[in-house]
Amino acid sequence: MEAFADYLAGIDNVEYRSRMEEIFNWVADKYPNLVPKFAWKQPMFTDHGTFIIGFSASKQHMAVAPEEAGILRFAKEITQAGYDSTKGLIRIPWSSPVDFTLLEKIIEFNIADKAECTNFWRK
Rank of each mutant, 00 (worst) to 15 (best):
I11C: 01
E15N: 10
Y16I: 14
R17A: 05
S18V: 12
S18T: 15
N25G: 12
V27Q: 07
V27F: 07
A28I: 05
D29F: 00
D29I: 15
K30E: 10
Y31T: 02
P32Y: 10
L34A: 08
L34K: 06
V35I: 15
V35L: 12
Q42T: 15
P43V: 08
M44K: 10
D47C: 15
D47V: 14
G49P: 08
T50I: 11
T50S: 15
I52N: 00
I52T: 05
I53M: 04
I53N: 01
S56R: 11
A57N: 11
S58I: 11
Q60S: 11
H61E: 05
M62G: 06
M62F: 11
A63C: 05
V64M: 09
V64Y: 00
A69W: 11
L72N: 14
L72V: 15
F74E: 00
A75C: 09
A75V: 00
Q80E: 14
Y83G: 01
S85T: 06
S85D: 02
G88P: 00
I90T: 04
I92L: 04
W94C: 01
S95N: 08
S96E: 04
V98H: 01
F100G: 02
L103H: 12
K105D: 14
I107C: 04
E108D: 15
E108R: 14
F109W: 12
F109I: 12
F109C: 08
N110I: 07
I111A: 09
A112S: 14
A112M: 08
K114C: 08
K114H: 13
K114D: 09
